[in-house]
């Protein structure tokens, strides 16, 4: 995590660049009024966590989208590498029975 671009988990390191004194990047997660969980909505810059929450409120809830905000500094996010996509996700793709639509339920039974 030495280069500034490591500040974003998805950004390749370019170690040659000098460290710049910028507001760090934060990832924003919002749970909406009827939402069950927080969803990633985007990123922004802020000097610290308190201001990041406030900025998130101003930037990402302009249309009353959310009731609860989480922010995480981008460099603290550990992410799977997209090239791992195969091993990580394929095994579960074969377990189609985990998905409710796998089962045909007669209409007469009603909502399930």
């Amino acid at each position: 995590m030495s280069s500034p671009n490591a500040a974003y988990p998805d950004t390749p390191d370019q170690a040659t660049k000098p460290k710049r004194h910028e507001w760090p990047l934060w990832e924003v997660f919002i749970r909406g009024q009827h939402g069950m969980s927080h969803r990633h909505v985007g990123s922004l810059h802020a000097p610290d966590a308190d201001m990041a929450v406030k900025n998130a409120r101003d930037v990402y809830t302009r249309r009353n989208e959310g009731v609860s905000i989480w922010v995480v500094e981008a460099r603290h996010i550990a992410a799977s590498s997209p090239s791992d996509k195969g091993p990580l996700y394929e095994p579960s793709e074969s377990k189609v029975y985990r998905h409710p639509t796998f089962f045909d339920i007669p209409e007469e039974v009603g909502a399930m």
Partner: peptide
């Protein structure tokens, strides 16, 4: 001074 403030002031 910065985009986030621009948006907040407009709010």
């Amino acid at each position: 001074p910065v985009l986030e403030e621009d948006i907040a002031l407009a709010n």
